[in-house]
Design a protein around this nucleic acid. Structure first.
Lengths: 222, 222
DNA sequence: GATATTAATAATGTCGACATTCTGCGGGAG
DNA sequence: CTCCCGCAGAATGTCGACATTATTAATATC
């Protein structure tokens, strides 16, 4: 099956889209800090493109909620108040519940093995915070992407990226990682058992637990 | 209480933001049809601004989901498949449930009278489809904006705008308007009674009923 | 006559320059 | 000393032009 000369529509073809990805990565990976100003001239120089391209890239990243653009005042990395963090987690919890409810019916039988593999990988990563965060993101992305709604998946993952730093924070203790993996285990069991209501409830609680831990650590450190 | 000379941050100050609003209105009010191509040069000429401003405006409207931008191919009014319409209504139903659950605790006591007024206005508008749609939007916006989360409100209203034409379609028969107003009545009652679970369930069902009617009419007409 | 190729047209992509607005610093009045 | 005012400097806002890519229509070939 040689690849036919079919037209591939590369979403990341245009310059601004590429720049947007790099800016978004920089924010999620904490290279750019919350509240930091993102000057168009600096970014243009750093990426070797014109201001117009940077400007459009910033609009794209704004769409994901990672940067905030104020008229006449430029762009800055979105800085969330404690209330807003709580808010995002709560909305995401409900959407994650909906996604996992749908996942029970939408997941093809031949994909359950992959889900179990991701769960095992998660449990093998219990020792290290960063590794666990990555494995957690992987299984989360799997569930969300197989729930049968591109829109819902993008929404949930977008909220996840906006609060990535707080999720990492909550997974910094091994105790929390064990609690999290227990939740994931329950969720996978419910999904495979075909219990949609249980999956929805468990998924929601899983996110809310993350929120509670993160908020507790936030208040404690301030 | 004369208004002090405080700095007002007008979100709609910049040209692209103003253009974005006008384009969005044009789409929601069915002046621009789904799938219609939105050429930058045409819009620039129509609004008397440069292409750069139109370009940025289109990015803003894309953020609301009302237009879809494809690389090298320009912008077009987002055209939703039946599955996608169903999808959006379902997500909105869950978010509306969450919003109304929160509304029960967040609504100040001195605002319940306004909610009842909006319900009465809704019932007075039962005779006309357009009037009812407006009244329905008004009470919906009231509930959502008083749920204590700007983000949640924007999300729900954004989804509402994306499917505005289908909501109007579903409210075109007086039978459906009566069913809708009954649902709203139950919702308002639950909110004022302070029953958050009931409010959540009723709100969700209210949106799902709209979805079912719209889909039925869509299938029927095709 | 239908299909494939190619040239002409028209759209978007990208850029640099100029206009406007914000920001921070310094000086003067109270 | 504090506060207000205004003036550089720097950032964003807006524009028109050129480069690149998609679309269309005409042509040639099978």
């Amino acid at each position: 099956m040689a690849s036919p000369p079919q037209k591939t529509y590369d979403i990341y073809a245009t310059l601004p889209a590429q720049i947007a990805v790099r800016i978004g990565q920089g924010i999620v990976e904490n290279e750019f800090r919350p509240g930091q100003k993102l000057r168009e001239v600096d970014l243009a120089a750093a990426f070797g493109v014109s201001r117009a391209s940077v400007r459009e890239a910033l609009r794209i990243v704004e769409r994901e909620g990672l940067v905030t653009i104020l008229p006449q005042r430029g762009a800055q990395v979105t800085s969330l108040s404690v209330d807003e963090v709580q808010d995002i987690f709560e909305i995401r919890a409900h959407l994650m519940g909906l996604a996992c409810h749908r996942l029970v019916r939408a997941l093809p039988a031949d994909k359950t093995a992959e889900l179990e593999r991701l769960l095992e990988a998660l449990q093998r990563a219990l020792d290290d915070g960063d590794d666990y965060a990555r494995a957690s993101l992987a299984i989360s992305e799997f569930c969300v992407r197989h729930a049968g709604s591109r829109r819902l998946a993008d929404l949930i993952l977008s909220f996840g990226r906006q609060t990535a730093r707080y999720t990492r924070l909550s997974l910094s203790t091994s105790e929390r990682r064990r609690q999290s993996s227990t939740n994931w285990s329950k969720l996978v069991k419910a999904v495979i058992a075909g219990d949609a209501s249980d999956a929805e409830r468990t998924a929601r609680q899983l996110v809310l637990d993350t929120r509670d831990t993160a908020l507790q650590l936030l208040i404690q450190s301030s």
